[in-house]
Design a protein around this nucleic acid. Sequence first.
DNA 1: TTGTATGCGTTATCAT
DNA 2: ATGATAACGCATACAA
Lengths: 356, 356
Amino acid sequence: MTEPVTLKTVAKHAGVSYQTVSKVVHNQGQISPALRQRIQKSIDELGYRPNAAAQALRTHASHLIGYSWSLERKDHSSFILDQFQHDIVEDAEDAGYHILLVPRRTEHDVDSHFRELVKARRVDGFILSSIEYNDPRIESVARLKVPFVSFGRSHTSDATACVDVDGRAGIAKAVHHLIDSGHRRIAIIAWPDSSRVGNDRLAGYLDVMSDAGLPVEPAWIVRGTGETEYGYSAAQQLLAIPEPSRPSAIVTVLDSIAMGAMQAVETCGLIVGRDIAVTGFDDMPTTRHLKPGLTTIRQPIREVARAVLSLLLAQVNGEQSVVQPLMLSPELVIRESSQGYGHVDHEKGALSTVTA
Amino acid sequence: MTEPVTLKTVAKHAGVSYQTVSKVVHNQGQISPALRQRIQKSIDELGYRPNAAAQALRTHASHLIGYSWSLERKDHSSFILDQFQHDIVEDAEDAGYHILLVPRRTEHDVDSHFRELVKARRVDGFILSSIEYNDPRIESVARLKVPFVSFGRSHTSDATACVDVDGRAGIAKAVHHLIDSGHRRIAIIAWPDSSRVGNDRLAGYLDVMSDAGLPVEPAWIVRGTGETEYGYSAAQQLLAIPEPSRPSAIVTVLDSIAMGAMQAVETCGLIVGRDIAVTGFDDMPTTRHLKPGLTTIRQPIREVARAVLSLLLAQVNGEQSVVQPLMLSPELVIRESSQGYGHVDHEKGALSTVTA
DNA sequence: TTGTATGCGTTATCAT
DNA sequence: ATGATAACGCATACAA
C-alpha cells in the first residue's frame, strides 16, 4: 500500500548503485566492511525485502511448495494431519519456503490441476498426504516430472519418493507387549481391506500372532469404518464371543476407535486394564486423560515432516534422491489400558514410554 | 523441468507477435475471430499458462492469500478449522487465488513475520482464524495497512473486518429448545473466562435463562478446559448436586465435551435423553452416530468461508468494505439427546433439523 | 572494490 | 487489427 522499497530505493539512500545493494543482500562479492555496514543500515532502516515475484521470475524458483491433502480420507486421524501440516509449514519456513494449499478436486480435475500449477511455475514441488491405493495424484504429479514427496505410500508407487510410518511395526510392538503381559486371545479392530494403512497395521498383528504361534480366530478380526461409534460396536461384537475364545485383549488401529471400545467394555461391566486390555494408535492428546490411560502407538510426525521436506528440497536442488520409501518407526506408549491378566506386567510400570 | 512455454513460444507457433497472444489470453483488443481461434489453438496445443511470477511482478498482485491459523487454540474444534481451511481454499481457487500457510510463531515474531510477507509482496492479503482476546496478529496486520479478514473476533478489534458465528444465539436456541421441552434446571459446561468464544456462548445461556425468569444456581455453571475428559468430570460434578437443584439438562459448548458428559450420565446409571438432556456444539460427524444422537448446534462454516473470502477480495480490489463484524447464525440440530422430561417434546420428532 | 548491461515473462501504451 | 517499445524488480556476467 505504501511506497515500495526496492533495491534502487536502498541504493539511493546509501549512495551506491543498486547492484551493490544486491550483493550485500546476498553476501556476495568483495565489499569493504564499512560500505557493507552502511548499506545494511539502509536496508534495515527502509525495511527492504526482496520482491518475491521479481526474484522468482529471475531465478526460476518460486520457493513455494504445493501441499495436497484431503479432508475426507480418514486413514489418518485429523489430529495427525493437522500436526503434519503444522510441522511442514514450520520446516519449510526455516528453509525459506512457503506452503501453498492445493485442494483435492474431483477425480477428473486431478491432472489438469497439478499441471496448471506447474506450467504457471507457481510451485517448485509438491507434498502429498492421505495417499490411497492407486492414488491418481501420484501418477499425475510424476508425469509432470516435478519434484514431489508423499507422506504415506500407494501400492503402485514403489518408485517414488515417500516417507511413511511403519504401522506394521507399530502394531507389532503393541501385540508383543500384550503377549508379554500374558495375553493369548488377542483381537483386532481394523479397517476394510480397501485401506492401505489398515492392511499394513493388520499385517503387524498377524505377523506377531503367527510368530508367537498363537492361533487367530476369524472372529477376532473385525473390519469396518468409523471412529468412536465403530469402536463401540466392534468391541461389543468381540465381547459377545462365547467364553472359551472370547478375547482378553483388543488392539485397534486408531485412538478414537479404542475409546469406543473402552466404552463398550465398561458398558459390559468389565474393567479396561483389568479384565480386558485395549490399545490405540496415534497418541492423541485426549488419550492420556482417559481413565485408564490408553496404551497407544505414537507416530513420529515431527520426524516425518522433517524427512519429507528434506527429501523434497534435495530434489528441488537437483540432487539425486532416493526413490525408496523411507520408513519411520512409531513408538509404543504404555499406559494402564493394556494391563490385564492380573496385572502380570505391573512391575514394568504404567505410564512409561518404551522405544523399542 | 521441460522447455518453458511462454508468450513468445506461442506467438512463434501461431505466426504472430507475442503481444497479440497476450490479448487473446485476456480477451482484449479487437482481433479477428479467425486469428483468435488459431492462437487459442496454439495455446491449447502447447499447454501455455502465464508465468505466475512474471504476472505478479507486472501487475503487483500475487493472487496469494496468507492464512494464519493455530494448532493449539482449541476454542474451535479442529473439525471446524479443518472444514474452514478446506472451504477457503476452494473458494479462493474459484476466484483465481491460492492460500499460503502462515505459521504462528512466538509472540515476538508475530510482527516481523507478517511484515516480511507484505514487504516481499508475497501475498495480497490475510485471513486469520483462531482469534483470541487481544490477539496480537490483528494489530500487527492492521498496522501494515494490508487487506485482511478474520474468522472470529477479538474484543479490541471492533473496527476490523471479520466474520463470526453467533455462538450466543446458537446456545440460546439450544436453551430455548430445552425450556420448550419442559426443562427448568439447566446447567452449562463452559470454558474459562479467558475464552472469548466461551464467554459468548455462556452469554447465550444466561440471556435465555434470565428472559425465561429461570433462576441459575452458581453450581450449574462449570468452567474449564479439555474435551471428552473435561466433559466427563464436569458432568460428574453436576450430577453430584443434591436432588432439589440437580440439573435435568446439560448444555455444553462443544460436541466432544458433550460426549464426555453423556458418558458420565450413563455411568451414573441414568439415560441421556430420558433422565437427563445433553446438547453439544459443532455437529461433528461422529455426533450423529452416538446413541442417543446428540442434539447440537451446527456452524455454517461453508457460508463463513464464503463471506470471509468475498470480504477479503473486496478489500484487495480496492472496494470500500465493511469494518463491522458480520455475524452468521448457527442452526439447532435436534436429535434424541435433548429429550427428557417424559419425552414431553416427543411429538416434534427426533432427528429433525430446525432452522430458527 | 564498485558500477554497467542484459534478460527473466508479462502487461500496457502507443504507433502503425 | 496488429506490432514495437518500455517497465515491473531482481541477479549476474562482465567491465572498470
